[in-house]
Computed example of a mutant assay.
Amino acid sequence: MSAPTLTRTVRSESPEETHRLGVRLGELLQPGDFVGLIGDLGAGKTHLVRGVAQGAQVPRSEVASPTFAIVYPYNGRIPLHHADLYRIADYDELYATGFLDLLGGESAVLVEWLDRIPEAAPREYLRITLRPSGEDARELHAEAFGPRPAELLTAWLA
C-alpha cells in the first residue's frame, strides 16, 4: 500500500458533532468517491454515516444499517452505496457479493469496517479512522490516497 497523499486529524466532542462532520462530507461527495471507515464498535461510525447520508440528501427513512444486507443503496443528490464488511470473512466472499462492481461507477461508496478487508479499497480513496478520546469525544484521523481524495479531504475539513 502506498503512503497517503494527505492526512488530517479532527476532534469531535459529541455524537452530534460527528454527525455534522458526516453531513459536510456527504455534501461534498461525488460519484466515484470511495470512503472507508475504520473503528471499533461504538467508535462513532454510524453517526458519521447517517450524517454523510443526510449531506448527500438521502431521505432519513432510507438510512439503515447494511450489516445483514452487506451493501445498501441510497438515492439522494447522488447515488450512494453503504457497505458493512463486518460479517464478510475475506476478499473472495466480498467478490462473490458483486461489491467490486460498484467501484468507480456512478455512485459514491461508503464502507464500514474497511480494515477487515483493506484490499476492497480502490487505489484512490479516503480512509477515516475513528477513535474514542473521552466519554463522547472522538478523534477522526483521515488519510487521502490520491488527488481526488486529497481534494475531498481538504474541502471537508476547511
Rank of each mutant, 00 (worst) to 15 (best):
S2T: 13
P4I: 01
T5E: 10
T5G: 00
L6W: 00
T7H: 01
V10R: 11
V10D: 02
R11E: 12
R11P: 00
R11M: 08
S12W: 09
S14A: 15
S14P: 10
S14C: 11
S14D: 11
E16I: 08
H19V: 01
H19N: 13
L21A: 00
G22L: 07
V23P: 01
G26W: 08
L28D: 09
G32I: 12
D33Y: 05
D33R: 04
V35D: 06
V35L: 11
G36I: 09
G39W: 05
D40Q: 14
D40E: 15
D40A: 12
D40M: 00
G42K: 08
G42M: 09
A43F: 03
G44V: 10
K45F: 06
T46D: 06
H47V: 00
R50P: 03
A53Y: 03
Q54D: 14
Q54G: 02
V58Y: 12
V58K: 08
P59D: 09
R60F: 11
S61R: 14
E62T: 04
A64V: 15
A64R: 14
P66R: 08
T67N: 03
T67S: 15
F68C: 03
I70H: 09
I70W: 07
V71R: 01
V71Y: 07
Y72W: 15
Y72N: 13
R77P: 08
P79Q: 09
L80S: 09
H81N: 14
D84A: 00
L85C: 08
Y86M: 05
Y86Q: 07
R87C: 02
Y91V: 05
L94Q: 05
L94G: 03
Y95V: 10
Y95M: 12
F99N: 04
L102V: 07
L102E: 00
L103P: 01
G104T: 06
G104H: 05
G104R: 02
G105H: 12
S107N: 13
V109P: 03
V109I: 14
L110K: 05
L114D: 00
R116G: 06
I117C: 01
P118Y: 07
P118S: 04
E119K: 06
E119L: 11
A120M: 06
E124D: 15
I128F: 03
I128D: 00
I128R: 01
T129S: 15
T129M: 04
L130Y: 04
P132H: 14
G134K: 11
G134M: 13
G134N: 11
G134W: 13
E135W: 09
E135K: 13
D136P: 01
D136K: 12
A144N: 06
G146K: 00
P147R: 04
A150G: 06
A150E: 10
L152I: 06
L152D: 01
L152P: 03
L152T: 05
L153C: 08
L153D: 02
L157I: 13
L157H: 09
